[in-house]
């Protein structure tokens, strides 16, 4: 088994779900045993229930898809009472993904969740393109200082490893990544969906109700790979690579570029067995190539 040590957290393999594409795992458990995954990253939660954006929320084309869900979720208490007891039945690590309107809300969520032994790590969603934050500041992660403040607030309240999920839609990703590292982040998730638009020429309307959304799928993989590679050389903390991973080869490319683990997102919509098959494919590659440890491949891109 290709075990991974992520900031002291041992994963049985490098495959995780990407937040928002896997719910709390319940639906996918009908297709395969969630214990085959390194970790389940749950749909982002906010302190209170959020109703999400107006439909349509989904559009696609051959290379990928656009979503403008808007973080619809039933809030932190619902998560604690339903998602965590469900996931407890599986031998996998559970990541809670959190979002708030300011550092105080992020901190409050971290404090509430840290009391839960069934949750093993927190991913801070600093990069959802479908919600707007106060003062017209765009994504939290587009500002190094704001990112650092939120990471620090979560770290102060959390007793578990903390990962900051960032966007590639910034001027210098290494600057943001370093700011998160210095603020105490135990790792980084790269990248979230990219802010994007699709237009329907027939109706002359945007394809999604919120005008713009987050781009994901195979088309963003090259952007994600470069982001991981750039950040890998800029920070010491582990990186979870994400963005357009559709199969095991895609996942292995991320590991070569420096990722310690990978998250599978939109691929879950296309193939409900994606996480299982990618975990198996990585295992097979390691066996075929006589690799015993992920460090033998991680960041070993030949330049």
């Amino acid at each position: 088994m290709v075990k991974v040590n992520l900031a002291g957290l041992e994963l049985k393999n490098p495959v995780m779900s990407a937040s928002g594409t896997f719910g709390y795992g319940e639906e996918f458990a009908e297709f395969f045993d969630l214990s085959l995954m390194g970790a389940v990253v749950c749909k982002t939660i906010t302190l209170k229930q959020r109703e999400g954006n107006k439909p349509p929320r989904i559009a696609d084309f051959s290379g990928g898809m656009l979503n403008s869900i808007g973080l619809e979720n039933k809030g932190a208490e619902y998560f604690v009472q339903t998602a965590l007891p469900f996931l407890e039945k599986y031998d996998t690590k559970v990541f809670a993904s959190i979002a708030g309107n300011d550092a105080g809300e992020y901190g409050a969520l971290a404090a509430r969740l840290s009391a839960e032994p069934r949750m093993h790590a927190i991913e801070i969603n600093l990069s959802c393109p479908n919600v707007t934050h106060g003062c017209g500041r765009g994504l939290f992660c587009q500002n190094a200082q704001t990112s650092a403040q939120i990471v620090a607030a979560v770290k102060a309240a959390a007793k578990k490893p903390v990962f900051a999920k960032l966007s590639a839609m910034v001027s210098d990703i290494t600057q943001i990544a370093r700011a998160c590292q210095e603020a105490g982040a135990d790792g980084l998730t790269l990248i979230n969906t990219l802010p994007a638009m699709m237009v329907d020429l027939k109706t002359r309307k945007p394809a999604v109700g919120n005008a713009s959304g987050g781009l994901s799928g195979g088309c963003i993989k090259p952007v994600a790979l470069k982001t991981v590679w750039d950040v890998y050389r800029a920070v010491k903390i582990p990186i979870i690579g994400s963005g357009g991973i559709m199969n095991a080869n895609d996942a292995l490319e991320f590991i070569l570029c420096g990722a310690s683990a990978v998250q599978i997102g939109s691929a879950n919509f296309v193939n409900p067995l994606a996480c299982k098959e990618i975990a198996e494919g990585i295992e097979e590659y390691f066996q075929k190539n006589n690799l015993r440890d992920i460090t033998q491949l991680r960041g070993q891109l030949k330049i």
């Binding site: 719910g23 109703e51 439909p55 929320r57 989904i58």
Partner: peptide
């Protein structure tokens, strides 16, 4: 009918507005 991604109730993509006090969609 609504644009749909997962089809499983995971992604919250195919929302339809309902008369319901608990959830808007």
């Amino acid at each position: 009918e609504e644009n749909m991604a997962c089809g499983l109730g995971v992604c919250q993509g195919c929302a339809v507005e309902v008369k319901n006090k608990d959830t808007k969609y």
